[in-house]
Amino acid sequence: MNDIGPIISAQSLVKRYGTMTAVNSVDFHVNPGECFGLLGPNGAGKSSIIRMLSGVSPVTAGRLTVLGLDASAQSREVKWRIGVVPQEDNLDPDFRVRKNLEVHARYFGIPRAVARERALQALDVVQLRDRQESRVDTLSGGMKRRLMIARALMNDPPLLVLDEPTTGLDPQSRHLLWDKLHALKRQGVTILLTTHYMEEAAQLCDRMVIMDHGHILVEGRPNELVKKHAGDEVVEIRPRPGHHEPVRDHISSLGVESQDGGDTVYVYAAAGQLANDLAGTEADVTRRTANLEDVFLRLTGRELRDE
């Protein structure tokens, strides 16, 4: 099929709903075999991008190709080739587990015998074969999510798109799901996912973008982004009640990069020296290794997003 060139390519991609601009001219590409992350707070434009590249939402402007196909003009072909795992459960409650997969395969015109065999193998992949005759409403949240992944595999897609695959799952289910996604990646499946969990992005993604308000803020490998935008260490300073002003003044006099998070001030880099400088001030000081969450919060701010 499309062995050369990117699996997904977005150029000056725009999505508008009426007068509201959800995606404001973004550029990114996803290479074959890669796991690519779309990160950003609510309303950043992640879901709009997912919907466009899944062929269910037309592109407003710019260019978006998936497996070399135009995501708007050739949406049917795109949908035929890729696998999509939506955020919310939309398994068919009228059918049992295996039948859900077989009915899905039929929409793709996959012959019945092939569909049956694929359903069993896909259930093996997500460790649900022994539940093949269960009603879907008897499955746990984690099982449902795994079943949705199995369903997305039925058309043997070279690209799997997952919208917040582990939201709402317990740690055991989440880790099992990560293992499954790693295994699929090893088999050559390209993965694009959105997530709110920085640990998940760091675990799974080779490359990622952090978005906000329809724009891409940064793009890169998780560890590079941490190094570049948060440094090695972060110092969290919590002034004691009544001592906010002097502590803050003291920090700004040190000339370090800090971010005000309400009750806590975050300082990136130069941790060893800073801990000495803050000795004696009326504040609790915690020193820790910088992570992706620091990058995220530093770039997108700490205000609540309630959209």
């Binding site: 035929w80 012959p111 193998q121 992949v125």
Partner: peptide, 19 residues
């Protein structure tokens, strides 16, 4: 492009996007 399935299930290009 390799298949994630084996045996009969791995039949490439089964089905058709439209009719």
């Amino acid at each position: 492009m390799s298949s994630i399935f084996t045996g009969i299930a791995a039949t490439q290009g089964v089905g058709s996007p439209s009719s």
